[in-house]
Write a protein that binds this DNA or RNA. Structure first.
Lengths: 201, 201
DNA sequence: ACCCCATTGTGACGAATGTCACGGTCGAGA
DNA sequence: TCTCGACCGTGACATTCGTCACAATGGGGT
């Protein structure tokens, strides 16, 4: 019997996923949560074989939860579930020893099969997504450039960005100029869109 | 027996929703689809009592599908499912005679209950979301202003927008200026963000 | 010790942007 | 018919933005 923990914030979806896995005779759902910061506690208490984590959880995101989970409960295999195919998420997931990475638009049978495969230590990663991740690569932005882009995303003006980040407004313009060049955008809006789509923010 | 049609593009979620509803003894899933433009054909063929439509479907969005469905198969009640709580979606849903509007982070029991209630002609709408929708209201933007904002969202420059919309670049600047003022933004980025969050694009 | 790069800043320049005033056409309603 | 608002445009203006050259500091590697 494979013991499964599920963390997914949308109640309806979580209930539906539990219903899906409950039909499988060789697995049982031993914990279901809606917050990332409850994952560790629940895993210690219920000792699941596999943790199915949504990326986008309140409290603590799924990948951070995966990181602490891997350290504290190393024999629990982790399978990450995500709606968007953001390449950077996969890269980060691999760094924190996630064994499986499944998109929500994968066929329904994939989840149960994925749970079985990560339970025996195999990796389960969509080849298309992996290729996309390798192609997109890591962020070309320095931490500060990413900060400035994130601030610009809010729609605030250059010198408001400067004030919130304690920079000169000229410096902010320089960082934005660098960021625009690096990501290949035409202006800050383009750069924000490109960086967000690639998951670099 | 309540006959249910389900349209949801993410396979895994769709399978899970089917699993959830299949546990209910008083309903059966007679059709499951992943495209909006297949809804009408499937509804005519399977004659469901209730159609559960995701908003965000490929081919034809859920609300457009709801519209044609209401005209062609009027005794099929429609329940819309959405992940984001964009007020404008609810407003449009009400216009096309949708009976129910459920968020994906509602409790799992809500869906089956919602299906039962719309099946007997009741309305099922989250009161919080309704309040938010009435508060946000309809878009203050004229169609053309919305066009220009949508184009600006792509990150292209003002005169590229002008070329794609066959306008003078000065006119584009005027529309953007109007839009920025109307939505209460500080610049075009702010206006794009505000309008997108409100669902006005 | 040296180099590389992130970080932060200045000054300057042209281009893009945001705002305003103004005028015209056209279709929908009062 | 007349008015109103959406639509489209011009011209002008100040401001912001994007880019460049240049310089100083400081942490990490080789």
């Amino acid at each position: 019997m494979i013991r499964v923990l599920i963390a997914e914030d949308m109640h309806l979806i979580r209930g539906a996923l539990v219903a899906l896995l409950s039909r499988e005779l060789d697995m049982e759902v031993v914990a279901e949560l809606d917050r990332g910061d409850q994952v560790l506690e629940a895993a210690i208490r219920t000792r699941p074989d596999v943790a199915v984590l949504d990326i986008d959880l309140p409290g603590m995101d799924g990948l951070s939860a995966a990181e602490v989970l891997h350290e504290q409960v190393p024999n629990c295999q982790i399978l990450v579930l995500t709606g968007l195919s953001q390449p950077s998420h996969l890269l980060r997931a691999l760094k924190v020893h996630v064994r499986g990475f499944i998109l929500k638009d994968a066929p329904a049978a994939t989840l149960a099969q994925g749970v079985r495969r990560v339970a025996i230590g195999e990796r389960v990663i969509d080849p298309d997504l992996l290729a996309l991740a390798l192609e997109t690569g890591e962020s070309p932005l320095t931490p500060r450039e990413a900060d400035v882009l994130r601030a610009a995303e809010e729609g605030i003006s250059t010198d408001e960005i400067a004030r919130t980040l304690f920079l000169s407004s000229a410096t902010v313009r320089n960082y934005l100029s660098n960021a625009i060049t690096k990501v290949g955008g035409r202006n800050r809006i383009d750069a924000i869109r490109i960086a967000r789509d690639a998951g670099w923010l």
